[in-house]
């Protein structure tokens, strides 16, 4: 019986080693170790043995059984590994093939610039004010210290609808309307929007364009506040190492009036083609709100003062992204618009 056992063991191990798949191995397990297998048969047949031999024989059978099981388990691990390896090989793909595209669009570059400016000022406590694109002459000009007959309000330069109504030429009427509505209270607003001038469209002119203006009115608002605010704006918008400088200028609705230059963000001030070799780039116009403008909106110009500034998102986008022709913004060529896809923080 011992011999028989040894033979069975050799036979089983031989088959285990020969098994080349997990399935074959499972068959071997069932064949030799299963309930109907020869080893189980041997155990069952022990009843026929003399009582004193039974324990010894039983132990022997168990040893063989454990040995066969161990070999089988070992073989199983190898075959399973091989099977997984095979599966992985079969499943492997060409990862260089293109993925399933997700179609996404993006902001128009002007919206991108406008929202960036809006958010920057919102963080400084500003609200966004909007108003009609078709305006009364009063809000567009008169309330801004541009009385009738003023050279800057030539009919030739504006799109009039009637004597008293026109397409707004700047977003300043929103300021005038806000001031009137606030009834003498402090104000901190940003006014973005479309504006219109009677220009022929070419590389640097557009009869429709965008403006974004800011207005702050309060007690003791000083020119130093304007300068500080614009400096924060310049650094956040164009980089931390931007410097600003103010140059005297003239606008009917502010006094004093200034223009703001920033140190060139391309060359840092040493002079390049972006800043036309000057090291500085003109970015916006600003000034202290003219007392006539305050008074006309019902503000006491002796008690309250304010500053205002305004800029053109087209110009900023052209500078920032190197766009050479303003008409690109209104042609909506997909090859242009889609270039402003990536985000920048």
């Amino acid at each position: 019986m011992q011999e028989q056992l040894q033979q069975l063991k050799d036979e089983a191990i031989g088959k285990i080693q020969a098994a080349s798949t997990v399935k074959e191995l499972q068959d071997v397990r069932v064949a030799y170790l299963g309930k109907k297998g020869p080893i189980t048969d041997l155990l069952k047949g022990m009843g026929k043995l003399p009582a004193e031999e039974r324990p010894k024989m039983g132990a022997l059978v168990n040893v063989v059984r454990e040995e066969v099981t161990a070999v089988l388990d070992e073989r199983l691990v190898i075959l399973e590994d091989a099977a997984i390896a095979q599966q992985l090989e079969n499943e492997s793909i060409d990862v260089t093939l293109p993925g399933r595209p997700v179609k996404t669009g993006n902001h128009h570059p002007l919206t991108r610039v406008v929202e960036e400016i809006e958010d920057l000022f919102i963080n400084m406590g500003y609200e966004i004010a909007e108003g009609p694109e078709v305006e009364k002459d009063y809000y567009n000009f008169e309330a801004l210290n541009l009385p009738k007959g003023h050279p800057a309000r030539d009919m030739q330069d504006s799109f009039y609808i009637s004597e008293d109504i026109l397409l707004r030429t700047h977003t300043s009427p929103v300021q005038a309307r806000t001031m009137e509505a606030k009834g003498g209270e402090p104000i901190k607003i940003i006014c973005p929007g479309k504006v219109y001038r009677r220009d022929s469209d070419d590389a640097t002119h557009s009869h429709q364009f965008t403006q974004i203006e800011g207005l702050v009115i309060g007690e003791n608002i000083r020119m130093s506040d304007l300068k500080g605010t614009l400096s924060v704006f310049a650094k956040k918008m164009f980089g931390d190492d931007r410097e600003i400088r103010l140059r005297p200028s003239f606008f009917p609705f502010t006094e004093p009036s200034v223009e703001m230059d920033i140190s060139c963000f391309k060359c840092g001030g040493s002079g390049c083609n972006v800043c036309k070799k000057t090291g500085w780039i003109e970015i916006l116009g600003a000034g202290m709100v003219h007392p006539n403008v305050l008074e006309m909106a019902g503000y006491d110009s002796k008690r309250l003062s304010g500053f205002a500034f305004g800029m053109g998102p087209e110009r900023i986008a052209m500078l920032k992204y190197g766009v050479e022709d303003i008409r690109h913004f209104y042609t909506n060529d997909v090859r242009f618009v889609s270039q402003f896809h990536r985000t920048e923080v």
């Binding site: 000022f121 919102i122 963080n123 007690e219 000083r222 500080g228 924060v232 103010l246 200034v258």
Partner: peptide, 17 residues
């Protein structure tokens, strides 16, 4: 204008938005 200091408006802060 270079000598004008840089300050921010004083007074109540506004939430903005």
């Amino acid at each position: 204008y270079d000598d004008i200091p840089m300050t921010l408006p004083e007074g109540e802060s506004t939430p903005g938005g």
